[in-house]
Design a protein around this nucleic acid. Sequence first.
DNA 1: TGAAATGTTGGGGCG
DNA 2: ACGCCCCAACATTTC
Length: 490
Amino acid sequence: MWFRLDLRLSDNRALAAAISSGARVIPVYIHDPHEAGAWSPGAASRWWLHQSLKSLDQQLAENGSKLIILQGDSHDELIELQEKTGATRLFWNRRYDPQGVRRDQRVEAAFKERGVKVETFNSSLLHEPDMVRTADGNPFRVFTPFWNRLLSSLVPEPPLAAVSVPAMPPKAVQSLPLDELKLEPSIDWAHGLRGSWEPGEAGAQKRLAQFVGSGLFSYSTARDRPDLNGISMLSPHLHFGEIGPRQVWHSAKSALDAARKRDARAAANRDGSSTKNIDVEVFLKELGWREFAYHVLFNFPDTCDQPMRKQFSDFAWRQDPPALRAWQRGKTGYPIVDAGMRQLWHMGWMHNRVRMIVGSFLTKDLLLSWNEGAKWFWDTLVDADLASNTLGWQWCAGCGADAAPYFRIFNPVLQGEKFDPDGHYIRRWVPELAALPSKWIHKPWQAPETVLEKAGVKLGFNYPGPIIDHAFARKRALEALHQCTASVPS
DNA sequence: TGAAATGTTGGGGCG
DNA sequence: ACGCCCCAACATTTC
């Protein structure tokens, strides 16, 4: 059983099939740092991967089995392993990113040639990324019709229960010690990650239970509020396959069914206008965006570097290293932007509403390339996922599938006031502004001198003034992007 | 899964 | 009573 981004024992189809084959199962993970080229896992992802592998190995140890860890070219290592063990079959769950697909094809061909049967499964998506097409046979480029089509043609199969993995003889194969993969940082900067997350299947299940139990039925409104805990935070667990989308889907649906039954029993004198089904619908739609991201990346594999809309191919994004650095480090002078970037730096994750705001700020206010944003997120996010990251950044820049139109430019002050009305999110992540009254916390440069002084804020000294004037930046972006998009439609 | 500019409406002040 | 102006509130259009 070749583990990759499916580091769990429950609802793992390849693993379940391997075990039910009745043969002795060798669980193996192969670390190949060069395989994905520029999109090899970033620092935050490697930290997570280390913890997740450790967790999986512990789970396997409880069964008397263990995770065999290897390092090197996947194809070569697997061939060698097969020769050593005489394995007769190879199981894995399919990858759908371009590099993963190519690698899998190569391995599959090699093993077929050697007479070893390869069996592959889908455990990471609700659908095969090339399952649905528009009426004229093309991949979808717009989310809503994609999702409608998927919903009408998809009955997510129920998740599989956890399996117990048969014990392995003690000296079956040599495994590298996990530490030897050097996934963890040599200078320990990961305390913020440790304090925020529990990588591994158990941690994923806890998150899911927590969300379904207390956040699901306020999701449709609370999801936009970075100052609340209204979201599942499952993204890194889903990325590493510590939990699968079928499990999430099923859990949300079951909770809805249960709630409906309760409501029906107690419904005597209520109007029955529960919005629970809306909440669940909106939540499941987010799984849908994940599916859409893979649909797009699978069918347009060069979009991780290249804009999908070709008129953006030679758009003159500015070069401005100091501005880029200010954005990365959360020192733009716009509190909501800085709060987001600092949250990212601290915990390897950012609320999605704030991702849109910082993405708009980078690409439209600063006119820096979305590629820069994608690279930074790739290195700092624990949920860095090639499909979602690519779709998200091209959405922000306006050059991708179902992207924000060029004139949609977020005002960081208004966004802050709308989605963090009491400034709690700012106070948590930008402590130098904590004493400012809510009225000014999203625009400290407009606050009266006396207010700033009382709050201990010295603009330009302990908190930067705005790195750029938004009204000016907006006009500049409109002009540049209008030029770019006007010539050729689509 | 925006924001700003521009247009419209209607109440109230006031000559 | 009437017309005029102001302007807030809301709606529509434009970027």
